[in-house]
Design a protein around this nucleic acid. Structure first.
Length: 196
DNA sequence: TACCCGATTTACT
DNA sequence: GTAAATCGGGTAT
């Protein structure tokens, strides 16, 4: 069952952990979502939407169920699932995926990867591996569309921690991952906290 | 129009 | 562990 705007209607910090174990698909290529981060609105200093609406973050302010893709460091793409009520910005950054299908297509797009666990273990890596780019910014996550996300069948054990690579709002524990999954972008700083 | 810098990845010491 | 690659968005001038 693919996600819909109602399933994604909650705030990013609530929707994010629910996306663990979901399957993201782009053409032949698919993977299990094993790591995410939540980004919300004006009260979240780390969010692109913190300082209001701009051409880049436009999609974050739109209805849930769309993809927000942006370029970072002039090199890589990062993919987010837009959630929350329309007009209220929020998105879940997909940080790591466990490759499922179309892996033979992923290797050529990840020439530096040496192991299966290097293929999609980072937000920029998984975009390259799944062939997600700026062309997908704003696309709706509809069955039959270029990118789809299937809901998880069950909620896996989860680890929680601070978000990666940000300098603001670092106190918020809005990074979520499947506990002990080898495909995560980075290990947990201290002993993983579990719940769920 | 100028300047700064980032929700990263990779190579190298 | 540190640093380079690389560039458009966002804010300031």
């Amino acid at each position: 069952m693919t996600v819909d705007s109602q399933w994604l209607a909650g705030p990013a910090s609530v929707v994010a952990p629910r996306l663990l174990g979901a399957t993201i698909r782009c053409g032949e290529r698919s993977g299990l979502i094993v790591e995410v981060e939540a980004y919300e609105g004006s009260d979240d200093g780390a969010s692109h939407a913190a300082r209001g609406r701009t051409p880049r973050n436009e999609v974050m302010f739109g209805p849930a169920g769309h993809l927000y893709v942006y370029r970072i460091y002039g090199m890589h793409w990062c993919a987010n699932v837009v959630c929350g009520p329309e007009g209220q910005p929020g998105a879940v950054l997909i940080r790591a995926v466990e490759p499922l299908t179309g892996v033979e297509h992923m290797w050529p797009d990840r020439p530096k990867a040496k192991r299966l666990t290097d293929l999609c273990s980072g937000p920029g890596k998984l975009c390259a591996a799944l062939a997600i780019s700026g062309d997908h910014d704003g696309v709706e996550l509809l069955s039959g569309g270029p990118v789809t996300i299937d809901k998880p069948t069950s909620m896996p054990p989860m680890a929680v921690g601070p978000r990666i690579g940000i300098t603001k709002a670092t106190e918020r524990l809005w990074r979520f991952a499947v506990a002990d999954n080898p495909h995560v972008s980075r290990p947990w700083p201290t002993g993983p906290q579990r719940e769920g």
